[in-house]
Amino acid sequence: MAETIAAQQAAAQAPSEADIEALLDELNVSSESNLISVLQDVQARFGYLPAPALEEISRRTKIRLSRVYGVVSFYAQFYTEPHGRHMIRCCRGTACYVRGGQRVIDAVKAELGVEEEQTTQDMMFTLQTVACLGACALGPLMVVDSTYHGNMDPRKALRVLQMYQEDSG
């Protein structure tokens, strides 16, 4: 169910082959291009990095697709799926876990009605979990976009979500 929604969203948003070609032409993508800036530009245009775009980037830059994906998946800033206006990243690392991180994650999931790597139907939030956000002292940690929210518990986490909802409401 959730998956079909995600798929529908993706389909609705997916740029056409022609859009992709046009953008890569415009960006002058070639074997001389800097991969990271190409990825940033493409994501800036489409909001995420659609698979056909990555394949075309690989062809034009002559960088293997496996390496393109390697780079994309290395940087948290890149998304290969369309995502919501706000990106929530909850930590599931050990330090956060022992302090109740999982309960925070469960609460967020229940509130938004999504699983990891999914986007709410209203395209407001995308939920991700991350192995360690590198600020273990603040755990349990939840990062929305680039703002760190430390010492979370389920109640506090929901309040944070509300804040963003109201902001955009």
Partner: peptide, 17 residues
């Protein structure tokens, strides 16, 4: 060049696209 490192940190692994 079928495989490469994917993801990072604890999640790093070797994978196809």
């Amino acid at each position: 060049g079928a495989i490469d490192f994917q993801e990072r940190g604890f999640d790093t692994h070797i994978g196809l696209p």
